[in-house]
Design a protein around this nucleic acid. Sequence first.
RNA 1: GGAGAGGUGGCCGAGUGGCUUAAGGCGGCGGUCUUGAAAACCGCUGUAGGGUUACACCCUACCGGGGGUUCAAAUCCCUCCCUCUCCGCCA
Length: 423
Amino acid sequence: MLDIKFVRAYPEKVQEALKKRGYEINFEAFLDLERERLILLRDIEQKRALRNSVSQEIAQLKKEERLEEIEKLRIQMRQLGEDLAFCEEKLREIEEKVQNFMLLLPNIPHESVPLGKDENENVEVRRWGKPREFDFTPLNHWDIGELLGIIDFERASKIAGSRFAVMRGLGARLERALINFMLDHHIKKGYVEIFPPLLVNKASMTGTGQLPKFEEDLFKTLDPEFYLIPTAEVPLTNLHRDEILSEDDLPIYYVSYTPCFRKEAGSHGKDVRGLVRQHQFNKVELVKFVKPEDSYEELERLTEDAEEILQKLGLPYRVVALCTGDLGFGSAKTYDIEVWLPAQGRYREISSCSNFEDFQARRANIRFRRRGKKGTEFVHTLNGSGLAIGRTLVAILENYQQKDGSVIVPEALKPYLPLDVIK
RNA sequence: GGAGAGGUGGCCGAGUGGCUUAAGGCGGCGGUCUUGAAAACCGCUGUAGGGUUACACCCUACCGGGGGUUCAAAUCCCUCCCUCUCCGCCA
C-alpha cells in the first residue's frame, strides 16, 4: 500500500508514476472522498471531545448529588450520541471506500526501473555461462523425463489432473537433492531456515498483496477457510506482521523450502506440457527485512545469492531488469533470473527478485524503531526465488542430457545425489 | 469433537462502570557517581489519526475483532477469532 498522505498531497505524481506501469487511475473521486472524510473526522472528534468533557462533568455532579442537572445533561448527550452514531456510520462507509481504493493501487516503480510497456522491453543486465553446443538435437525435458522413467505426467493427471506431475525414483531424488543443495547454500550465506504453514489466513494474503486483487489465482479451502500459499513469501513476510522490531534485529534473512500452489488462471494454452507451469511446485524462497536505506544494496545481494546456485550448477543464465510495464503489483524493482533451456532455445524465468520497499510493510504493519529515536518507521521487504526447484530440474535435464538419453549429474549436486549419471 | 482457562503498551503484568490522561516491573533513552564499565539512584519513555511550519501544544481513537447497553466501557451483554490446559480421536 502507498502512503495515503503522499497520495493525497501529490496525486499527479502518483498518477504519472502508475501510468508508467500501464495503470490509468483517476484520482478525482478519491480526493473528493478524502476531503469529505477529513471534514467528517474533524466534526466527529469535536463531538466526542464535547461528550467526554460533559461525562466528566456528570461524574462530578453525581458526587454532589445534583440530580436534576445530571438529567438535563443526559438528555442532551443522548441526542449528541445519536447524531454521533449517524456521523460515525457515514465515516465508516467513506473509510471503507478509501481503503479499497488504496489497496488496489500498485507500488510506484523505482527511478532506476527501465520504462516499457511489457516483457519485450525488459532490459538484460548481465549474462553468465555459454549455452552448450549440441552435436545432436536436444530433447525436451518431458521427453527425457519419460524416457528415463523419472517423471510421470499421465498418472499425475489420473490422480489429480492437468498441470501436475509425479516424480519417480531418481526424479524424486533429484528434486530432493536440489532442495537440500539450495537450502544449504543459503544457510551458509546467513539466511535462517524456516518451515512455515502452507495454509494461511486472509490477513496474511492481504499483507503481502495477493488479496484483494488476485483472489482468482489462489487455491482456497472451505470450512475452515484457508488459502494455500502461492509462494513462501506469504508466510515468511507475515512472520513479522503487526510487529515493531528493534533496529538491532535488522537485517533479517529467511530462507524456506515450501511447495507452492497456484491456479494459473489466465495462462490457458501456455506451457501446457512439462514441469514449467504446474499447480503445485517446489520452491526455495529468500525473504529479507531491512532498513530503508539498505534495501537497494540488499536487492543486489539477494539476486547474487540466487545466481550463485546456477553458477554452482553450471547452468547458463541471464539477469533482466523488469520494465515498468512488467513489474509485479507490489514491487518497486525486480530482477528476473532466466536460465537457458536448450530444447526451447531460449532463456526462461527461474527466479524473480524484488524490492517492495515499504509497500508490503505498510499493508502488513511491519515497523522498526531506531535506537535513541522516537516513533517508528516501516521496514523494507524483499524476496526472491532461490530457486524454483522444478524449473531447475528442467534446466539440468535439458542442459546435461547426452545423446544416449542419460543425464550427467552436476558436480555441485553430487554430495546430495551421489551418482555420475541419471539413466 | 467435549470441558475449562485466558487474550491489556516493545516485553511481563495489575486493573470488574466515572480522579485510569492504563498501576507496577522489565527493556530503551538521558543524567548523577566512576579512569571506564557494572551496580545504585534521579528523570524521560506506547501507537496511530486530525488540528499545526513543528515528534512544541491541543483534540480523538486504540486494552484480540465486530456489534450492543450507557451521559460515560479495558471493565457489563452478545457474537466471532485466536492461544493454552485436560479428555477423546489420530499421523
